[in-house]
């Protein structure tokens, strides 16, 4: 079930930009934790819970590595834990490293769901009108890739039976065969395109997406939530500084609202999927 991907591509794109911008560029652990749980929930709904947990555990050592490496590169901070070659290994850089690790984890997780939701069809829809030529190349390339892989494997299977070459040499000669074949057929493709009147008029795209009332509601709520989130970031109310000592700014009303708004933003797609899922199950049980 991917109910969220049924929204209009523009709205989905804006949603992801909003979430990415906050998760990639803030240093406050609160935002990052909210973003992390939100992305995890969304991924759990898109995949299964088990797969999500496994991929989460896979990235944990990576984040820990980033956390440990950070103090080696920067020596800011006021509380040294120990010294390596007269360079301080400070507590603050360690914490900042942990934040970095969390941030990278967040971004990787959001991109995992982005990859599932935002397929090439949506990209083409978004950019088809702005730049028709490049979108055409993009969609043709997408079409050629599986053809190549298939043709390459066919040639490789035959070559393996016929010749005893080293693996690398065989790959290269198969690759070369694929190139020849595809360049020759490309002219056929181009000629049949011209025969059907390409470059005589404007290129149009078929898009199955219509901007509906639901899209409008979602768009407006995304904009409201992201503006509420940004108010605290821009004014510096939610700022956390790490050097020379870690200082959390006080939790005032603006910051609190900002956290709530960002939490709503991050949990929105996951909750929406769950809601649609329940609706589906309920309607089945009624039948």
């Amino acid at each position: 079930m991917k109910a969220f991907s049924n929204f209009h591509p523009v709205v989905i794109f804006i949603y992801f930009i909003a979430v990415f911008s906050v998760s990639m560029f803030t240093q406050s652990p609160v935002y990052l934790l909210i973003s992390m749980t939100g992305s995890f929930l969304f991924l759990c709904v898109l995949n299964t819970v088990k797969i999500s947990i496994i991929s989460f555990l896979k990235y944990i050592p990576f984040s820990i590595l980033i956390m440990i490496l950070n103090p080696l590169f920067s020596h800011n901070g006021a509380t040294p834990l120990f010294f390596i070659n007269n360079n301080a290994f400070t507590f603050e850089t360690l914490i900042y490293g942990a934040i970095l690790g969390l941030m990278i984890l967040c971004v990787i997780f959001w991109f995992k769901s982005f990859n599932i939701i935002f397929n090439s069809e949506k990209i083409l829809f978004l950019f088809g009108k702005i730049s028709p030529k490049i979108s055409l190349i993009f969609s043709m390339a997408l079409h050629f890739i599986p053809n190549f892989s298939r043709y390459f494997n066919e040639v490789l299977a035959i070559q393996k039976k016929l010749y005893k070459k080293s693996k690398f040499k065989m790959y290269i000669s198969c690759f070369s065969a694929v190139v020849t074949h595809s360049l020759e057929t490309s002219v056929d493709t181009a000629d049949s395109m011209s025969a059907r009147g390409h470059s005589t008029g404007k290129v149009t795209n078929y898009g199955r997406f219509r901007f509906k009332t639901d899209d409008f509601i979602l768009l407006v709520s995304i904009l409201i939530l992201i503006i509420l989130t940004y108010i605290a970031i821009v004014t510096g109310a939610s700022k956390v500084s790490y050097y020379p000592v870690i200082i959390f700014s006080n939790l005032d009303l603006i910051t609190f609202i900002s956290y709530l708004a960002f939490a709503a933003l991050c949990f929105l797609p996951g909750m929406y999927e769950i809601k649609e899922d329940l609706k589906w199950k309920y309607s089945i049980s009624k039948i």
């Binding site: 030529k133 050629f144 890739i145 181009a190």
Partner: peptide
């Protein structure tokens, strides 16, 4: 500037082929 330049359909298709080849190359290897 690519979008504004006049390019023949054949060139377009060949660029698409080369793009696809480089992506497929990333897979194959």
């Amino acid at each position: 500037s690519f979008e504004n330049r006049k390019t023949s359909v054949r060139t377009l298709v060949i660029i698409a082929i080369m793009t696809a080849l480089s992506v497929a190359g990333r897979f194959i290897f």
